[in-house]
Computed example of a mutant assay.
Amino acid sequence: MIPVFSKYMFGKRMTPAERLRKNQRSLDKAIRELDQLRVKLEKQEKTLIQQIKTSAQKGQMGACKIQAKDLVRTRRYIEKFYDMRTKIAMEFERENDIMEQRQEMMDDAIDDAMDVGAEEEGDEVVEQVLEEIE
Score class of each variant (00 low, 15 high):
8 Y>S: 01
126 V>K: 13
76 R>G: 12
96 N>E: 10
63 A>H: 05
29 K>L: 13
41 L>P: 00
93 E>M: 00
84 M>H: 13
110 I>A: 10
129 V>I: 07
122 G>M: 07
30 A>M: 05
127 E>K: 15
73 R>S: 07
43 K>A: 11
131 E>I: 14
127 E>R: 05
73 R>N: 02
49 I>F: 13
106 M>I: 15
65 K>Q: 03
74 T>N: 02
124 E>I: 12
20 L>A: 11
1 M>G: 14
54 T>A: 06
94 R>I: 06
39 V>A: 15
85 R>E: 15
41 L>N: 10
4 V>L: 09
20 L>E: 09
96 N>R: 15
133 I>D: 04
112 D>S: 03
39 V>G: 04
37 L>Y: 13
102 R>T: 02
83 D>W: 06
92 F>W: 07
34 L>V: 01
85 R>N: 03
80 K>Y: 10
23 N>A: 07
119 E>H: 09
103 Q>A: 07
12 K>P: 05
127 E>W: 01
61 M>D: 03
15 T>P: 04
124 E>F: 01
104 E>G: 02
130 L>G: 01
45 E>R: 10
51 Q>G: 00
95 E>M: 10
121 E>A: 12
86 T>W: 14
107 D>H: 12
49 I>W: 03
119 E>C: 12
59 G>P: 06
57 Q>E: 12
100 E>L: 12
105 M>N: 04
64 C>T: 05
13 R>W: 08
78 I>A: 00
74 T>Y: 02
87 K>Y: 01
13 R>N: 11
22 K>L: 06
125 V>L: 14
44 Q>S: 04
134 E>Y: 05
124 E>K: 13
78 I>G: 03
31 I>V: 01
64 C>I: 05
81 F>M: 11
2 I>F: 13
79 E>R: 15
20 L>I: 09
38 R>I: 00
88 I>V: 11
34 L>P: 13
34 L>S: 04
14 M>T: 15
134 E>V: 09
7 K>V: 09
